[in-house]
Amino acid sequence: MTTTPVPSTSAPSPRTRRSRTKAALAAAAAATALLVAGCAGSSAAGHDGHDDRAGAEHSAPASTTSASPSTSAAHSDVDAAFARDMVVHHEGALDMAELAVERASTPEVRALAERVRAAQQPEIDLMQGWLAAWGEDPAGGEHESQHGDQHGGHGADTSSMGMSEQDTAALEAATGTAFDRLFLQQMTVHHEGAVEMAREEQVSGSDPQARALAQRIEADQTAEVAEMAALLAQLPA
Rank of each mutant, 00 (worst) to 15 (best):
A139C: 10
A104H: 00
E201I: 09
G155F: 06
E172Q: 15
H191F: 07
A219L: 13
S160F: 12
A219N: 10
P208D: 05
T106M: 10
A169P: 02
V101W: 03
A210S: 12
Q128I: 06
A104Q: 02
Q121A: 11
R211S: 08
E142R: 11
M197D: 05
R115H: 11
L126W: 12
I217S: 06
L171R: 03
F179V: 01
L182P: 08
G141H: 10
P138C: 03
Q120T: 02
T168P: 05
H151I: 14
Q128S: 08
D125Q: 10
D180Q: 03
G148N: 13
R216H: 14
D220Y: 09
G140W: 13
G162Q: 01
A198M: 12
E200N: 14
G152T: 08
V195P: 02
I217N: 07
A133T: 06
A133M: 06
I217P: 07
T106K: 11
V225N: 05
R117Y: 08
A212I: 11
A178Q: 11
H143P: 00
Q166T: 12
P107T: 07
A169Y: 02
T175G: 14
A210G: 11
Q185W: 07
G135L: 00
W130K: 05
E108P: 01
E227C: 02
E102A: 10
A219R: 09
S164K: 04
M127D: 06
G152D: 07
E224N: 02
R181N: 01
H147T: 13
H154K: 12
P208T: 00
Q150F: 15
E201K: 07
E144H: 15
G205V: 05
V189Y: 08
Q166F: 08
